[in-house]
């Protein structure tokens, strides 16, 4: 079981949390202008990263607040926990491709 450090409540069991999928999937600026394909990609297409993955979690049994977490999908190592709205902490690193923030489908796997 993961021990997740909620930004408000401190370390708690994974069972107190719910998963919210990939983080930093921005809502399209002009949804009307999208093709069906692009809209489907926004709604349903997500990265399947091997390695560091930014995802959303909610402390549903505790403070009921959402936060972002950078987790290694191979080792389950939690690398960072940061607030909603904050940029991914390792964005500036050149070796991480995070173009997924705007175009989920366009991200290199």
């Amino acid at each position: 079981m993961l021990l997740i450090s909620c930004p408000n409540c401190g370390p708690r069991d994974e069972t107190e949390f719910h998963y919210g999928g990939q983080a930093h999937v921005a809502y399209p600026e002009n949804p009307d202008a999208l093709t069906d394909r692009q809209w489907a990609e926004y709604l349903f297409y997500r990265d399947n990263t091997k390695g560091a993955f930014a995802e959303r979690w909610v402390h549903s049994t505790g403070c009921r607040q959402w936060f972002n977490m950078l987790r290694d999908t191979v080792s389950y190592d939690i690398q960072a926990i940061y607030k909603m709205g904050q940029p991914r902490p390792d964005m500036e690193r050149a070796d991480v491709n995070t173009s997924a923030a705007t175009t989920p489908e366009g991200a290199t796997k």
Binding site: C9, R12, D13, T15, E16, T61, G62, C63
Partner: peptide, 10 residues
């Protein structure tokens, strides 16, 4: 006072 699970009950 803490919100938690007791016997799997929130």
């Amino acid at each position: 006072a803490l919100a938690t699970e007791i016997g799997n009950i929130p």
